[in-house]
């Protein structure tokens, strides 16, 4: 009994230290390192500026002041132009590139009220310092030739309707249509939360504009994402080959 009491006495400081350690971990959580360049030198002003406008504006938290002026022109006067191309500060050796894993997808023979799907990859490289975006638009809904028989663009599950700009779950087999899910690098994971989240494509026939599928501000050497196409047809859907064409557009940021 005496031995147990002694052991209890000895263990209490250890418990206290443990408690402090837990508190320290809670208050100072381990975070990922975020690198940033901090240097002591300022920047070099190569030419003097003659201010022609100045002023101060502000609100309760920020004071702002502005000046506007005109610098002396040199070479421009003789040549008539000044040119800059590529990203000056962090030029990439690799050109801006974009590729699709395939140039056509087949959803196969669809069975009513059963999801059919296919997927491919989108790869972007050399996006420079400012980043990029990849957008997509379809020419029209899946349809047979020029006929009016179409598989509509999905609205996902009836409870939470998805739009070209917002994904929502699509698990109900009585919700018919055609849509896509995105996963992988530079995909908005707040929108495509998991593999059940889908969106319809922006539709050119409905005067919609291309919608961003993946993108990132800042330097991107290489990014790959997977696009999963999904379709579900009603029992009354007519037989035939339903087709459309989808344009994927990769644009660098300026």
């Amino acid at each position: 009994m005496n031995f147990i009491n002694k052991l209890y006495q000895l263990s209490r400081p250890i418990v206290a230290i443990g408690l402090i350690a837990v508190l320290a971990i809670v208050i100072f959580p381990i975070k990922t390192v975020q690198a940033a360049d901090m240097s002591g030198s300022g920047y070099i002003i190569k030419m003097g500026t003659i201010n022609i406008v100045s002023g101060t504006v502000g609100n309760s938290s920020v004071k702002l002041s502005t000046t506007v002026g005109q610098t002396v022109s040199g070479e421009f006067e003789t040549t008539g132009y000044r040119l800059r191309s590529g990203f000056q500060h962090t030029a990439t050796s690799e050109p801006f590139s974009f590729s699709l894993g395939t140039d056509a997808i087949s959803l196969g023979s669809l069975i009513a009220s059963t999801f059919g799907g296919a997927n491919t990859t989108l790869t972007v490289g050399g996006a420079g310092v400012h980043g990029y975006s990849v957008k997509a638009i379809e020419d029209h809904s899946l349809q047979i030739g020029e006929s009016q028989s179409t598989i509509p663009d999905t609205v996902c599950d009836p409870k939470e309707k998805c739009t070209p700009n917002r994904a929502s779950p699509w698990t109900s087999t009585i919700s018919y249509g055609f849509g896509y899910n995105m996963s992988g690098d530079d995909v908005d994971q707040n929108d495509f939360t998991d593999s059940t989240y889908f969106r319809p494509f922006a539709n050119n026939q409905s005067n919609q504009v291309p919608v961003t599928l993946m993108g990132k501000p800042g330097r991107t050497e290489k990014a790959t994402a997977t696009i999963t196409f999904q379709a579900n047809i009603s029992p009354t859907q007519g037989n035939g080959t339903y087709e459309n064409s989808i344009q994927f557009i990769a644009l660098p940021s300026y």
Partner: peptide
């Protein structure tokens, strides 16, 4: 006999200033 045919497009941004001045006046505020 495919569902969707796909095209790829890539862009390069062109930013042009038309001005008789080499450094036309600018007004930028934070």
């Amino acid at each position: 006999n495919v569902s969707s045919t796909m095209g790829a497009a890539i862009g390069s941004n062109l930013l042009l200033t038309i001005s008789p001045l080499s450094h036309p006046p600018s007004l930028v505020r934070i």
